[in-house]
Simulated assay, not measured.
Amino acid sequence: MLKPATAFMSDSRLLRTPQVAEFPAAVGETGQVLFDQTIPRHLVHRAAVSEVFLTDLRVTDETTFQVGAQWPRDHSFYRLRRTDRHDPMLLAETIRQAVLLIAHQVFEVPLDWKFVSLEKTWGVTPEGLEMDGRPANILLSMTCHDIKRTKRGVTGMRVEIGCYRDGVRIGGGELRWSCVSPATYSRLRGGKDTQVPAASALGVPVSGYLIGRERPRDVVLSAMPGGHTWQLRVDQTHPVLFDHPVDHVPGMVLMEAARQVAQLTVGEPDSLPVRCCFTFDRYVELDAPTVVTALPAPPAIRGNRGVRVVFDQDGSTVATSVLDMMVVC
């Protein structure tokens, strides 16, 4: 049975302890969604407390939820060279965390089950990213569709998300995901989940000034011959992109690579990914080279620059993305 849980505990007992609360009357109201503290990190699969952006959960009905989040004024990785806007990738990570939160806290998906993102789309307005001298309190309005249930519980769904700041809609997204038990995951991975493989050798990073990055470790691409082709740099020591050991390349690493490829293609280091559509076809292995290719694409919004990014590994496409890049004057 779905539980209207809003109070968080420090261990898995929270999955069995419902807490009833009052909920906002309309989408966009933030008066009763709290921003006082972050939720327990294990609910969003993070090892570092500093990487948790979510602050609260409110249940409206069995398929509708509101999630509070806060975007910091500065972040060690999700940051722009210009200091007048938040990094749009904060929305992508916030959506990822929010989906995990409702899966565990509301739909009772066990904490050790493995999640797979199948399709992810998100977008944000330039105005919604503007800095105003304080952290940004964000409200996600989430509606679940096509919920898949088995005797063992919920195994996937499609989630529509609206993103609000100070009561004003600034963006949104959609995520389709599935999850499996540890035993099923081990069979799907052919035992690769039992140990973390060494990544393929790191190539020389693309010059950081071309993509607005100051630190070479934050560059996830190395150049290849051909002009519009790069190789993915998988640095498992990166404290944000690899917050904890995993057996495959995380989706957020691929999203960051797509952003950096789009910046290189547009030729503007400060260009912003204001819309992104991603399809994940299969797991991206850590120990095999991944080739990243940029192709032209029509933008979804007039005035932006469209870029299609394709990820190939072992001769097969493993992920595809289309981005709208806004050139900042």
Rank of each mutant, 00 (worst) to 15 (best):
G167M: 08
S181F: 03
L202I: 05
V204W: 05
I211R: 01
S207C: 12
P182E: 08
V159M: 04
A183S: 12
C163I: 13
R176E: 12
T150V: 10
V180G: 01
G208P: 09
V154N: 05
S178T: 15
G191M: 06
S178D: 14
A198M: 12
R149N: 07
V204K: 03
P182L: 03
Y209F: 14
T184W: 03
V168Q: 14
P197D: 00
L175D: 12
S181P: 08
K192F: 05
S200R: 08
E174I: 02
V206K: 10
R149G: 03
K151H: 14
E174V: 00
V196Y: 01
G156E: 08
V168P: 02
E214Y: 14
V154A: 09
L202A: 10
G173Y: 03
V180C: 12
G162Y: 11
R213N: 06
P216M: 00
G171L: 11
R215W: 05
S200K: 09
G190N: 04
P182D: 08
S200L: 08
L202E: 04
S186Q: 11
L175F: 08
I147Q: 05
S178P: 06
W177Y: 15
I147D: 01
V154M: 11
C163H: 11
G172K: 03
V196C: 11
P216R: 01
E174Y: 01
V180E: 13
R217Q: 06
G208N: 09
P205T: 07
G191K: 09
G212C: 04
R215A: 07
P216C: 01
G156P: 07
E214R: 15
